[in-house]
Amino acid sequence: MAENILIIVLSTISLIAAVFAVVTKKTINAIISSGVVSLMASITFLLVAAPDVAMTEAAIGSGLTTVVFLYALKHVRGQRSSRDD
């Protein structure tokens, strides 16, 4: 029963974060909330008895993917500001 409540809470958070990632205006907010989706997914994997996958998802989905997106954003931003001034 407690597990079901936890699953419902996790699902709700990840769905809200996913919708927010789509509708928000700022790209950086979208990147962070897609990281939140991955983090919730990794807890979900732990609940469905897949600890290997949970470890990988926690390291990659919320760690490295976010950093890769941020680096890409830095490229784009840096170029634009250097062109403007």
């Binding site: 897609s34 469905v48 993917t65 954003l73």
Partner: peptide, 27 residues
């Protein structure tokens, strides 16, 4: 979405969804 980075974020979310479906089927 129109922005390329936002499209790629959509791809990442879709990727996570596919992984969740696959693991949920094996439970």
């Amino acid at each position: 979405r129109k922005n390329l980075i936002r499209i790629i974020i959509g791809f990442a979310v879709m990727d996570t969804g596919i992984n969740i479906v696959l693991v949920a089927i094996g439970y």
